[in-house]
Design a protein around this nucleic acid. Sequence first.
DNA 1: GGTGGTCGGTTCATTATTTGAACTGTTATT
DNA 2: AATAACAGTTCAAATAATGAACCGACCACC
Lengths: 256, 256
Amino acid sequence: MSTVGKAISLLELFSVDEPELGLSDLARRSGFDKATTRRLLVALAGHGFVEQDIGTRHYRLGAGLSRLARIREARFPFLQTAVPLVRDLAASTAETVHLSEFGVDSLVTVHVEHPAWANRVNIDIGQLLPLHSTASGIAYLAFARDETVKACLTGSLDAFTAHTLIEPAAISRSMSEARERGYSIYDQGYEEGVISVAAAIRGADGFALGTIAVAAPKARTTAAAIAERGLAVREAAREISMRLNGENLQILRRQA
Amino acid sequence: MSTVGKAISLLELFSVDEPELGLSDLARRSGFDKATTRRLLVALAGHGFVEQDIGTRHYRLGAGLSRLARIREARFPFLQTAVPLVRDLAASTAETVHLSEFGVDSLVTVHVEHPAWANRVNIDIGQLLPLHSTASGIAYLAFARDETVKACLTGSLDAFTAHTLIEPAAISRSMSEARERGYSIYDQGYEEGVISVAAAIRGADGFALGTIAVAAPKARTTAAAIAERGLAVREAAREISMRLNGENLQILRRQA
DNA sequence: GGTGGTCGGTTCATTATTTGAACTGTTATT
DNA sequence: AATAACAGTTCAAATAATGAACCGACCACC
């Protein structure tokens, strides 16, 4: 692995649940030597990618990341555009709504709205969603580039529950359905007792950029609710796509 | 420079004005060899820190950065907390309001609200603000750790205009004033014709984390307006600090 | 329709950086 | 007072990064 890859995988050890980690802990979890880990952390800290708590000496993600993320967001206002619609959808469905963006080979959860219920589906920001076993994943694949689909379907796929689709043919069928319907449905593919609907947010080229999804405990979810939510999520995704592409056109026009 | 540092300095070549860059361009600007640049980009792309436009083959900042920034933001909801108050302040002052967070050795602009005026102070997200020559910088230094202040005052300081303070004694005096008043005033220290007021956003330990500032064309700014804005910005900073530290207490309580 | 310039991307012998076992010193626990 | 876990450092050995030269593709210009 390249040194750069090692440094980044250190960053990826941080999560919403464990936002601060000590040196030894980082070394242990990454598998790198303590000296190596420290050298990488110092390099990262030098550019503000991590910062160290003065008191505990623990490390956490730094402001440099916020800076770059905001620059990205300025060019490509995915969050800004989508979050209000995620909120609306969360309000109208009273279930967990989450927004994801495609990165490397899975979907990255970038925003979540949770309902007030005690019994609800909990999703953390930063969580990675596999493509073959989630409603979001299927919705994404339905409008993804051929090479992305192929990369996903070749190689063995993990079965997280008894309901997870691991046959390429079954996944393809599910994708086709999602494409026709405009939204995907996945029944307990990633976790028992959770049913989700999702729709793809698409770029100007028609390919999927990310997804918006509603996840709910299966126990209180009727078939009618699924159909209703499907339409709502499809509508939200369409609206986000439209606003995004409108913005993009403006940007291109300004550059020209 | 470490390989990691090189990779990060590639990322830092992207800005709001130039969010997409080609390989040769990146190599030229970074001073690295084209092959090196490419290797670094591939490593970064492997973790979603950059992505490549399929059409133009240009590179841009990737979704992996958004992911990590959101994880950071979940632990430390600086933006979420501050942005509404930045908006309020922008509405009431009708001037440019910007929010910064400290990173490495300068302040990083993480949010900006611009007024509708054609003649206004323009600030980009991601822009770095020097500590000694901006209202934000002085406000930050007024409540910064001694070592940060010392690091800033030792070494030669750039004079951006004829008004920039470059004497450590003068800067210290300005800091003291800001500390007593609760906000800083800087008259054309970074750019001619711009006058700003700023106040420090402080953590639970009392030290500054970042700043909120109002910047306006000097031509339409009266002394009375400055005083009024000063109080408003101080109040906004106090409110943000309170909300942040309240949140932090909750987080600590949850962990205990 | 050739020609020179630039682009993105690749190769591989040379070179410089990264690595990690062993070390110090500090702090919390028993 | 002993133990253990922690953060951080050192330096010879091992490994990964480097960059000049290369390819093919594309574009503009004479």
